[in-house]
Design a protein around this nucleic acid. Structure first.
Lengths: 201, 201
DNA sequence: CCTACCGATCGGTAGG
DNA sequence: CCTACCGATCGGTAGG
């Protein structure tokens, strides 16, 4: 008669999502069974269905929470009055920080979204496309302002977004530099990789 | 009484690996069943076992083929007489090219290796660690030669290896720049991101 | 929250 | 290469 404890920020559903993110990160969505998840939470598999409707709904919860966090940040960045290059740097720093502190959620969202059921699959892909387009628009702006090299903006976006995924390995490694050093290294390589050489101070 | 046709380079086992790579790429290893694979090849699932021993063996074949290709290239690069920076550029170009032409194999190897069975899992992880260490050593060499910025070499390796993974999205996209342009964009951002600013010609 | 259980599907084998 | 089939496990439901 074990009970799922409520998570810090609230409901039991929240606790389930959190543990699911950990397991999906470790073994993948398809290789994680509802019985695996229940075991980690100390209950029977059937009991989970009092809090969630399906396995698919859990994945949906994880993916859209991440998508929303990045969308919200994108809106903030677009509205501030910095140069395009500063905006890009701000986004990269946010990606790095999210990857450091919420890497299980981010990694699951990035790697397992293809297992979403319709109509969420389509919806998620649309959000992802929109985010990338807006990121690419910032890079284009940087090129017009002569701060950024004349490169293909969508390609630059792909590099930026995937590069921060490398932080996953940082989590697994023993010999760790600090999170701050990691962030600075990322910015050094990525932002200066974008930057026109005559713009580097 | 359909038959699996022999692939260009030989055996039926080869044909099976090729189709499996495509399916594992599309749906993931765990979500792909032997019946899915058999259907794509036009035979019954049981027939596959005349050519391979298990589902796990297929994954092993894919992962180790990719690992071997990169290891072989690493050895070639280490032995040539270029500067460290040129060696790094050579490796990045190889990664880009592999990602363009063999992306299903590379993507499956990068994303599904965790489903390998022992002892292959341990063996694969060891190869992967070794590759990254040797890559990091080249970056260290570049720093000593004052060609590369003073950054954390293992972090730089993570960025390089993950950044090229973005090419997956290039394959899916409609509006494509050419493979050559893609390679140049990658090198521009990544190599110059590593480069000391006073070293850029 | 549990016990009991469902139909479907899984990887794989036997035997021809 | 196939048919026939195995035990295990899957996501999920009924009913309390």
């Amino acid at each position: 008669m074990a009970k799922i404890k409520n998570s810090a920020n609230g409901t039991k559903k929240e606790t389930i999502l959190e543990e699911a993110a950990r397991l999906f990160y470790e073994k993948g969505f398809s290789a994680t069974s509802m019985r695996d998840l229940a075991e980690q939470l100390g209950v029977e598999a059937a009991s989970l269905y009092n809090h969630i409707h399906s396995k698919s709904e859990i994945l949906k919860g994880i993916c859209f929470r991440v998508a929303e966090a990045f969308m919200t940040r994108m809106e903030q960045v677009e509205m501030n009055n910095e140069t395009a290059l500063k905006k890009i740097e701000g986004l990269i720093r946010f990606h790095v920080q999210q990857m450091i502190h919420e890497y299980e959620y981010v990694h699951v969202s990035d790697g397992e979204w293809k297992h979403l059921a319709e109509p969420y699959l389509t919806e998620y892909q649309a959000q992802r496309r929109s985010y990338r387009k807006r990121f690419a628009a910032l890079i284009e702006e940087g090129i017009r302002e002569n701060q950024v090299k004349d490169i293909d903006p969508p390609t630059a976006v792909l590099i930026m977004l995937h590069a921060v995924g490398g932080i996953e390995s940082w989590h697994r490694s023993k010999r760790k530099i600090t999170a701050e050093q990691l962030e600075e290294n990322m910015v050094t390589i990525l932002v200066q990789g974008l930057c026109r050489n005559d713009q580097i101070k």
